[in-house]
Design a protein around this nucleic acid. Structure first.
Length: 422
RNA sequence: GGAGGGCUCGCAUAGUGGCCUAGUGCGGCGGUCUUGAAAACCGCUAUGGCUGGUGACAGUCAUCGUGGGUUCGAAUCCCACGCCCUCCGCCA
């Protein structure tokens, strides 16, 4: 949720931001009107409630003879209060609806427009060249007996897989490498729940425009998270954090579930787009003035991890129209997939400023000791399935074996090469 | 799944319809005293909304797990839900 004070003081900021995302600026005016209506409703209800309190107290102090007449008047007052409170409720609900419809304010410098307007900031690493026809990760992984897509489909359906043998080992190796890097960078390692209550899902903004991406367990009113960002953000809900010593950083491992509604026919093969995968996610709580610097740090840690895996990639400044509703800015790291001759998203880091924290009621104390809304940021350290896919493709060799980058070897029993099986 | 107990201010507790503007203790902050400190004593001690003010602030409303209800009036009575604890059963 955006700060309503900003909207009241500088509505053009909000209108411009909506326009940059390709959304109707009128959403700002609808919220503005709902806000004004709510404030009017609150003021009149407060005034009458105050009157009622006074009247009630007088009844308490009155003698038996005085009471009947006073009660009649008080009953009338109570009915009026009830009516005004109903108006207040309706006005509250209207603000809430309008509030949820307005995404976070796009940061200065974010390219306006849609997907095609995203800007490549830099390209890192040399594209590999092969003196053979590079295979895709499904072919390589099948040869290594590392990936079993067929049985994944048999057991769970399309977009499911088994990691077997060295594939399963790769999952743990990547998770351990990611967690080790995160720990060395000052993150607290976390294992986070994959099932969360509606407030957590809503608070992080995942029940908005993309609600149909989310698995819901109706019998229990719980949601399967699409990223541990949800649980990590909600971890400190309703708390006042001590941010005096700098940002609080967590690296969370969890399974992630995505319905991939509307992506029929897209990336149907392999591990690139699946309904379930495991992920190590970075998450930061900090003060709002620190977010731009923290965002660059998160990007830096993502780049460090990709460098350790020796994967060529490009960094993309995502255009306004392609940002999630919570983000003011998003950088994606897209790694090279030789089988597709294309860069594909491997990691993504978003600066959500106070948008999620306001909703989740996460605050800190400023120098004056006053509570202020905190800021949140998140970034992928390793989306494991897709990273395995990329790793196998980039480091494949002519005989179907795969070279293990040195950083990963300690986590794979020292192996330098993964060999095809029989 | 079954049975019971609980949820009150940072922590601990009191509070079974109006004197609750939620008391007391602890902790914390400030002060008096003291060469300094401790002790003692005095004062303060939450969060959010709204209104007013340039402002430190003032007024007002809300908040006793959450949401409804009864009542002129609810921490207190009723209903539903959430969470925690204990025991039984089942279980990785």
């Amino acid at each position: 949720m955006i700060d309503l004070r900003v909207l009241r003081d500088e509505p053009d900021l909000v209108r411009d931001s909506l326009a940059a995302r390709g959304m109707p600026p009128a959403l700002a005016d609808e919220l503005l009107a709902a806000d004004a209506a709510r404030r009017a409703a609150v003021t009149s209800a407060d005034r009458l409630r105050s009157e009622q309190k006074t009247a009630s107290k007088e009844i308490g102090a009155a003698s038996k003879e005085e009471r009947p007449a006073m009660l009649a008047a008080a009953q009338e007052l109570a009915a009026q209060v009830k009516a005004l409170e109903e108006e207040e409720r309706i006005a509250d609900a209207a603000v809430r609806t309008a509030h949820l419809a307005v995404p976070n304010l796009v940061a200065d410098g974010v390219p306006p427009g849609g997907e095609d307007d995203s800007l490549v900031l830099e390209t890192v690493g040399e594209l590999p060249s092969y003196d053979f026809e590079p295979r895709d990760h499904v072919a390589i992984g099948t040869g290594l007996r590392a990936i079993d897509m067929e049985r994944g489909a048999k057991v769970s359906g399309a977009r499911f897989y088994f990691l077997t043998g060295v594939g399963a080992e790769l999952e743990f190796a990547l998770a351990n490498l990611a967690m080790a890097q995160a720990r060395d960078s000052g993150f607290t390692p976390m294992i986070a729940p994959s099932l969360v209550r509606p407030e957590a899902m809503e608070g992080t903004g995942f029940l908005g425009a993309h609600a149909d991406e989310v698995y819901r367990l109706a019998a229990d009113d719980l949601y399967l998270v699409g990223t541990s960002e949800v649980a990590l953000a909600a971890y400190h809900a309703d708390e006042i954090l001590d941010l005096a010593a700098g940002p609080i950083r967590y690296a969370g491992w969890s399974s992630c579930f995505r319905r991939e509604a509307g992506s029929y026919g897209k990336d149907t093969r392999g591990l690139v787009r699946v309904h379930w995968f495991d992920k190590v996610e970075m998450f930061s709580f900090c003060t709002p003035d620190q977010t731009a610097a923290e965002h660059r740090r998160l990007l830096g840690w993502e780049k460090q991890f990709l460098a350790a895996l020796e994967l060529p990639y490009q960094v993309v400044d995502i255009a306004a129209g392609d940002l999630g509703s919570s983000a003011v800015r998003k950088y994606d790291c897209e790694a090279w997939f030789p089988s597709q001759s294309a860069y594909r998203e491997l990691t993504s880091t978003s600066n959500c400023t106070t948008f999620q924290a306001r909703r989740l009621n996460i605050r800190y104390r400023d120098e004056g000791g006053r509570p202020q809304v905190a800021a949140t940021l998140n970034g992928t350290l390793c989306a494991i399935a897709r990273t395995i896919a990329c790793l196998l493709e980039v480091h494949q060799q002519a005989d179907g074996s795969v070279r293990v980058p040195p950083a990963l070897r300690p986590y794979l029993g020292g192996r330098e090469i993964l060999e095809p099986v029989g």
